[in-house]
Design a protein around this nucleic acid. Structure first.
Length: 425
RNA sequence: GCGGGCGUCGCCAAGUGGUUAAGGCAGCGGCUUGUGGCGCCGCUAUUCGGGGGUUCGAAUCCCCUCGCUCGCCCCA
């Protein structure tokens, strides 16, 4: 094939898929507006430094997954691999954080240069929520509840919410020393990848799926035991709130988010029906990010949902509507009149599909039946002569198990109101 | 970046060395010059992702290459 193709991992959304996307988008927009969240839209392209500084040099996202290139002015640019850093940058840049707390959402394409597989693409889509300037546990709980309710609203089954605390920066540092020390005495038992991570990003050794490493870690000291009283109390309080809200969760002491900017609350919502990628929603608190990017110390918490993954889970539960009217028409005078009537019906909110093919009535009716329209509206030479429209009920009477061809109404062409009334009845 | 699987019509798919490359769905036309689910008839790949090679002969064997897909790593 000499034809042009899309780039690897950058998929087209074809007309038979876009209805699912529109459905998802409308559901989350509705949730967010009822929760009083405001939308923010930031560019897809940012200076590379934003991500290397914000997400962390040691992370895989920055180290090997970014879509980075030089623009014509020799600036290093990167297609955003996630949304949080850009949102933070925009808020700092425009001074919005000085005006009090913010509750925001965003959605759109993100880019990571990885080998595509089920539930993972190079251009993928996320929808995310971020709260700024809201530090108490009740906010963590509200934020989590929005994700939880949203996913449940999509009819997703078997969701699991997992929760952990990464403590504050001092807790983490204290623990990091402890775990590195503990692991140093057992380096030879670690797999190769984990050995590399030992000094670069030791916390993420807990992410390893190598069985021998996981075995070893069973006896390792846990981060949760290094939390100071304040951090521990914070976690307890959040769990109490979640229990009171009847949002089921489990604690996962190994849950360490991949990106550097997290602190305290870390959570993940997973499904066992996603193949190798089980995480559908990931999030946590990142109180140090704004400061790290040059803003004032600001508490912040957020999550992101992978829309492709949500689609894999929710698709089956979606239903869509079919046309109210399929306009069967034939003959030169009929075509123009049909189009003009179609416009009037559409302006009244009626879903009309018009057949402009000029093919035989038989063909047009077949198409009308196949598109599952409620009515066939017929206009041909005969109708024009009699100055009337023929409205015919489609579909079958389940009890008769065959087509009832008798349900036909004649409406004067100059009395569209009756037509509309009949269709909407 | 590394493994496994796969690439035959818009989609699904048979064929695994021998004259014309099954079939199904969708599409178009007809049976029915103006009436729908079904049925019947006809049309739709000089060509098997691409390039080389072996052979009298290849979609079928070999080599290279490209692409897709699943998984590893990591993440949403």
């Amino acid at each position: 094939m000499n034809n042009l193709r899309n780039l690897r991992g950058m998929n087209d959304l074809l007309p038979d898929q876009t209805p699912f996307w529109q459905k998802i988008e409308s559901v989350f927009r509705d949730h967010f507006s009822r929760a009083g969240l405001k939308e923010i839209r930031t560019p897809l392209l940012e200076v590379t430094e934003l991500f290397s500084r914000g997400i962390g040099e040691g992370t895989d996202v920055v180290g090997k997954e970014m879509y980075t290139f030089l623009d014509r002015g020799e600036r290093s640019c990167t297609l955003r691999p996630e949304g949080t850093a850009s949102v933070a940058r925009a808020l700092i840049q425009h001074g919005l954080l000085k005006q009090g707390p913010l509750r925001l959402w965003y959605s759109g394409p993100m880019f990571r240069y990885e080998r595509p597989q089920a539930g993972r693409l190079r251009q993928f889509h996320q929808v995310g929520v971020e709260f700024f300037g809201l530090s108490s546990e009740i906010n963590d709980a509200e934020l989590i509840s929005i994700a939880w309710d949203l996913l449940n609203d999509f009819g997703v089954k078997d969701l699991k919410l997992e929760l952990n605390s990464l403590g504050n920066q001092e807790d983490r540092k204290k623990y990091q020393d402890k775990i590195v020390n503990w692991l140093e005495n057992r380096v030879e038992l670690l797999d190769e990848d984990s050995q590399k991570r030992l000094y670069k990003n030791p916390l993420r050794i807990f992410d390893s799926k190598v069985p021998s490493t996981q075995d070893l870690l069973k006896d390792a000291p846990l981060l949760i035991n290094s939390l100071c009283n304040e951090s521990r109390l914070r976690l307890e309080k959040l769990m109490d709130i979640l229990r009171a809200l009847e949002i089921p969760f489990s604690q996962n002491f190994r849950l360490v988010r991949g990106l550097d900017y997290y602190s305290h609350t870390a959570f993940e919502i997973t499904s066992n029906q996603l193949g190798a990628q089980s995480t559908i929603c990931g999030g946590g608190r990142y109180d140090s990010l704004i400061n790290q990017l040059g803003g004032l110390e600001t508490s912040a918490i957020g999550w992101a949902i992978g829309i492709e993954r949500l689609l894999l889970l929710a698709q089956d539960s979606f239903t869509f509507s079919f046309p109210d009217v399929y306009f069967v028409n034939k003959g030169q005078n009929a075509e123009l009149l049909a189009l003009s009537i179609t416009r009037k019906l559409r302006s009244k909110g009626i879903f009309v599909e018009i057949d402009n093919s000029s093919s035989s009535f038989s063909k047009q009716f077949k198409r009308a039946d196949r598109c599952k329209a409620k009515w066939a509206l017929v206009l041909g030479e005969d109708e024009i002569l009699n100055n009337e429209l023929r409205l015919k009920k489609l579909g079958r009477d389940e009890s008769l198990n065959e087509i009832d061809k008798t349900k036909e109404v004649l409406v004067p062409i100059n009395n569209i109101d009756i037509l509309i009334k009949t269709i909407l009845a």
